[in-house]
Amino acid sequence: MTILKWMGGAMLAALILYGLNQYGLEPLREQIKSLGVFAPLGIALLRGVSIILPILPSTAYLLLAGTLLGFKTGVATVVIADLLFCQAAFFIARSYGRKPVKKLIGEQAMERVESFNKNQLEDNLFMMTGLLMTGLFDFVSYAIGLSGTPWRRFAPALILSVVISDPPLVALGAGILEGGKVILGFAILGIFGLAITRLITQRSQKSAID
């Protein structure tokens, strides 16, 4: 599954680069803008499908949003998508249980989901938030739903994680191609902070399992 996600991400990146090389950034953006509300909606739906079906790459859509929509619109698009679809994954797991979730996402993805249930996430807001800030947030959303965690405890962790983790990667997509030093600097600092948070969370997760 990890290989499939990386392949999917690489293919998406290749398509973006092909489009940029073939048409140039500004003409491509103009074509995207001509779609109006359907451009952000399309990226939001792609991002959402990658959350509900974790075999698809999701991080690439953050870069895509920044590249094609710009920083502000890109952030708004992916934040809304993440809040909606992560909650959808949570409620699917909470409402229907393990068997339907396993049929939906597959056996290998279910094994990853089950691995998070060993951490008793419902009792650890810090770890819940930290794991939702990693690239495995889709699996974590299912796991938290299966754990019986109340929505009122899941929602604040989700909001905090999305607000912190989405902007740096969108900024990276926007900053590199726009040449915006401030945006790019923010992106690098944000990604560095996310890396530290992920390291701390992984250590906490390992301690919880032990």
Rank of each mutant, 00 (worst) to 15 (best):
K118F: 11
Q120K: 15
L121T: 02
D123V: 10
L125E: 12
L125Y: 09
L125W: 13
L125I: 12
F126M: 15
F126V: 12
M127R: 10
M127H: 07
M128E: 12
M128W: 10
T129L: 03
G130P: 07
L131V: 04
M133S: 13
M133D: 00
T134Q: 10
T134H: 06
G135E: 06
G135T: 11
L136P: 08
F137P: 02
F137D: 15
D138E: 11
D138Q: 06
D138H: 05
D138M: 06
F139A: 14
F139D: 12
V140R: 04
V140T: 12
V140Q: 01
S141A: 09
S141N: 03
Y142K: 10
Y142C: 05
A143E: 04
I144C: 06
I144A: 08
I144Y: 01
I144T: 14
G145L: 06
G145Q: 02
G145V: 01
G145M: 00
S147A: 07
G148Q: 04
G148I: 09
T149G: 06
P150T: 11
W151P: 11
W151Y: 13
R153S: 15
R153P: 07
R153N: 14
R153K: 09
F154A: 04
F154L: 13
A155T: 12
A155I: 09
P156Q: 02
P156A: 07
A157D: 00
A157Y: 00
L158F: 01
L158T: 04
L158A: 07
I159R: 10
I159V: 13
I159Q: 12
I159K: 04
L160I: 15
S161G: 15
S161K: 00
V162W: 04
V162Q: 01
V162I: 11
V163K: 08
V163T: 10
I164S: 09
I164P: 10
S165D: 02
D166R: 12
P167S: 07
L169S: 09
L169G: 11
V170D: 07
A171I: 04
A171Y: 05
G173P: 07
A174D: 14
A174V: 07
A174N: 10
G175R: 03
G175L: 05
I176K: 14
L177A: 08
L177K: 06
L177R: 06
E178I: 11
E178W: 09
E178Y: 01
G179K: 02
G179M: 03
G179F: 00
G180Y: 03
G180E: 13
G180Q: 11
G180A: 08
G180N: 15
K181P: 12
V182M: 13
V182R: 08
V182S: 02
I183C: 07
I183W: 01
L184N: 00
G185I: 03
G185P: 00
G185D: 05
F186R: 05
F186D: 06
F186H: 09
I188S: 02
I188C: 04
I188F: 10
I188A: 08
L189G: 08
L189W: 09
G190Y: 05
I191N: 00
F192A: 15
F192I: 14
F192D: 13
G193I: 08
G193Q: 04
G193K: 02
L194V: 07
A195G: 14
I196P: 02
I196K: 09
T197N: 11
R198A: 15
R198S: 13
R198M: 15
L199Q: 13
